[in-house]
Amino acid sequence: MRLAITVWNGRIAPVFDVAGTLRLVELSGGAVVQDQLLSFPRDGGMFSRVTSLSQQKIDVLVCGAVSRPVHRMLADSGIEVHSFVSGDAEEVLEAFLNGSFDDAAYFMPGCGRGRGRQGRGRGAGIGRRGRNGGFGPGWKEV
């Protein structure tokens, strides 16, 4: 399995759409066989950003906030996306490797499962929840 994490200053990069560094980890039989940092060009547009992940044959992506159209592109290219994740990149990777990764423990502020969120006056108002069954980011599924 090939896992990619967008990183910045040792943490999960805040916004996938503009993230500049990708940590690429290849796992085989539960062991890390490859671990490298790749630069992620910011000037190529969203399509080339998603395409480059596909070309790297990424199976799973762990990242911070991601805009809706980009998430759709990622999902369409068959990548399992764990978005709106925050925290220390090493800790998140470790949790992922030992099978204890739980999105809820690493959700960015305002994206908590079942906690809802305050409206911005553009939608359903106070207490409005994410589109997918009340889960803020709700974008784990492919």
């Binding site: 943490r11 759409d17 925050s86 960015m108 502020p109 305002g110 969120r117």
Partner: peptide
Amino acid sequence: GISREEAIGRECSEVFRSSMCE
């Protein structure tokens, strides 16, 4: 869309999540 209780004490880039952070 983030309450101040959730925001206070967190890294600003993880709360604000802007295209300019990096």
